[in-house]
Computed example of a mutant assay.
Amino acid sequence: MNLKNLNIGSLIKDSVSKNEIDISRICNFLNCTEKEVLEMYSSPSLDTEILLRWSKLLEYDFFRLYSQHLILYAPQSSMEYIQKKKVDSSLPAFRKNLYTKEIVE
């Protein structure tokens, strides 16, 4: 799997075929047409609400792929910059280096 250039639609399509999920079940679960599902398969990105539904249907955390991409390919922030930039936020704070490259691999 190439985490550098994610194409979420093709990854979802692979997961659907691997799990042998019928298109009618997918359409019912996502409340969409077969044409829309096929468009999602060819899409390099999806809306988070749709991706959440796919994650539930396929019982796989597709968001983790993006998290791993950030861990591996986002530039490391210097501690000095982080300390200067401390701003209160309503969002939870995460440590970027929670997983090392070896753990992800």
Rank of each mutant, 00 (worst) to 15 (best):
E34N: 09
S10T: 13
P44S: 10
Y41T: 03
L3D: 00
V104Q: 05
S89I: 10
K101N: 11
P44N: 10
K96V: 12
L98V: 10
E39L: 10
L46N: 03
I71Q: 11
A93F: 09
E80V: 07
P92T: 06
L91W: 13
K4L: 08
L72S: 01
L6C: 03
I21Q: 02
L52T: 12
M1W: 05
K86F: 13
C32H: 00
R53L: 11
Y60W: 05
Q76F: 09
F63N: 02
Q68E: 13
I23Y: 13
Y99C: 04
R25F: 14
C32G: 01
N97F: 12
Q83G: 02
V87W: 04
K101W: 06
G9N: 04
V104I: 15
S89E: 06
S24K: 13
E20M: 14
C27H: 04
E102F: 03
R53K: 14
N2S: 12
S78Y: 11
I82Y: 08
V16K: 04
V37R: 00
N7Y: 12
C27N: 08
H69G: 02
P92F: 07
C27W: 02
L58V: 06
S17F: 15
Y81T: 14
S55R: 01
K84I: 08
E105Q: 09
D61Q: 01
D47Y: 04
L30N: 03
E80M: 04
E20R: 15
N31A: 11
R95K: 15
N31D: 13
M79H: 09
K101M: 10
S67F: 08
I71D: 04
Y81M: 15
N28L: 14
Y66Q: 05
R25S: 15
D88A: 13
W54C: 04
K101V: 11
S24M: 12
D22R: 10
P75F: 05
R95G: 08
D61W: 00
L30G: 02
S89M: 07
F62Q: 00
E34A: 08
S78C: 12
W54K: 01
I8M: 01
L30K: 01
H69P: 01
Y73D: 05
L91V: 10
I82K: 09
L91D: 10
S67L: 07
Q76W: 05
S15W: 01
N28C: 13
E102L: 05
Q83W: 06
N2E: 13
F29W: 06
V37S: 00
T48Q: 07
N28Y: 11
R25V: 15
Y41K: 04
Y73R: 04
E102K: 09
L72Y: 02
S45L: 10
C32Y: 00
L58R: 05
I23L: 15
Y99D: 04
M40F: 13
I50D: 03
Y60A: 05
D14N: 14
K35A: 11
A74V: 04
H69L: 03
D22A: 10
T33F: 02
S77P: 14
E34S: 11
S24I: 14
S55K: 01
Y81W: 14
E102D: 10
D22N: 14
I103C: 06
D88M: 12
E36F: 07
E102W: 02
